[in-house]
Design a protein around this nucleic acid. Structure first.
Lengths: 230, 230
DNA sequence: CAGTATCCTATCCGATACTG
DNA sequence: CAGTATCGGATAGGATACTG
């Protein structure tokens, strides 16, 4: 049997048995970040197969880390939530993030570029406050994407909801941001600023929105010396 | 390819790629705890095959977490040490330990009993201070061990070095401790005290040493609400 | 003591397709 | 939308023996 457990009484070993399995930590990261629906979780771990995601969620449920429950009066829909013990894993995820942030060379970070994942992450942390108090549409065009969508639209509703599309939603675009995935990822990860990167970004549209990009964009929870908001 | 990496730019993913592989975290735990020689490490992860341990150490070396170096004027002998980035993993190990300590039911802990591993751990944290200032030999006899050694000797030298034997080293025994593995593990993990367990422990020999057992024994670094000493 | 070498298989996991 | 079913291949890793 390839997997018989560590057979150690040490709590570190116990935890490792649960967490140190492929994808598991990333699934938990997604849950910590706030995703709760199956397909939302999927978007956070696009390279993971749905069957494996399903399996992992079940394992986490068995371990009492995740609770799966029906959404009231939404027939057949379910959501996954962290239990108290799951929420107690936040320090573990934070420790991972902090260490990776400090010690994995940023070059490596910038080798795992993925525009759709980036946009999905950005959507989550976007801060609508600096934006006009009306529907605002920001279009991103990545010049260097060869496969898959190269254009994305963030639709920020007045109430603060943010939608992400990879096909034109048809609204008037307030600001168009043309750049490359590497530049945008570096900014998002706190490795560079919008200002630093001004030679690799072109704006078209509302100058005011462009000027405050560093503000409304927010940063990855794991950007340099930032902490994960629980 | 079963293992292509997560292909995510997130630092959590980077760290997970390195750490979330079978046995890796436990090897790091051993290094953090102070083991540096191959065979010492082995004793800390007895169920791990030497080839796999060797492989993991190489991987950790490649990731810059571990440094392997020859021991000066000890021809052919090597030791493994954590690099600065490796030492920065202490918070990760701590977070694992804390979570496991809090959330994995202690019943499970007490199902993974292993007397030799327990003794090896105890040896490491034993505090010689409360003991007489001369060689002190404490013998443990585990009544419930059916396979493998059931007797162990801790030989505490005046300078503070502690040796562990599973065959009689021949010295006079100052204190004999007769108990069962479960009781001893519970004490070591902070789930019980020597006093609590007095009906399951018998002493023979120096009453003074017996009386201070809770002191010289020390506790697991992961015992209830204890922190890992870096 | 400190590892290597070899072998072999269980199982993990990726890919894809499909369903209520 | 939210998963399940099925399949096959790669490989991780367990067991064991061996070596300088």
């Amino acid at each position: 049997m390839t997997h018989a457990g560590y057979q150690q009484f040490c709590p570190v070993a116990m935890t490792a048995e649960i967490l140190c399995t492929r994808w598991t930590v990333l699934v938990i990261r997604e849950l910590v970040a706030g995703s709760s629906r199956f397909n939302d979780l999927r978007r956070g771990v696009p390279k993971m197969s749905p069957s494996l995601l399903s399996q992992r969620l079940k394992e986490l449920e068995e371990h009492g880390i995740v609770e799966r429950r029906a959404i009231p009066r939404e027939h057949g829909l379910h959501e996954y939530r962290l239990t108290p013990s799951g929420r107690d894993l936040v320090p573990v995820i934070e420790a991972f993030g902090k260490w990776g942030q400090k010690w994995v060379e940023s070059g490596l970070t910038l080798r795992n570029l993925d525009p759709s994942l980036l946009m999905w992450d950005m959507r989550r942390n976007l801060d609508p406050a600096p934006l006009p108090d009306q529907r605002t549409v920001i279009q991103f065009v990545f010049s260097d994407v060869s496969r898959g969508p190269r254009e994305y639209w963030l639709v920020v509703e007045p109430k603060g909801d943010v939608d992400l599309c990879s096909t034109d939603p048809g609204f008037d675009v307030d600001l168009l941001v043309a750049t490359d995935v590497r530049t945008m990822t570096a900014i998002w990860m706190g490795l560079a600023t919008v200002k630093d990167s001004r030679h690799s970004i072109e704006f078209e549209g509302d100058r005011g929105i462009a000027a405050t990009m560093q503000k409304w964009l927010g940063l990855s929870p794991f950007a340099t010396s930032e902490r994960l908001a629980s």
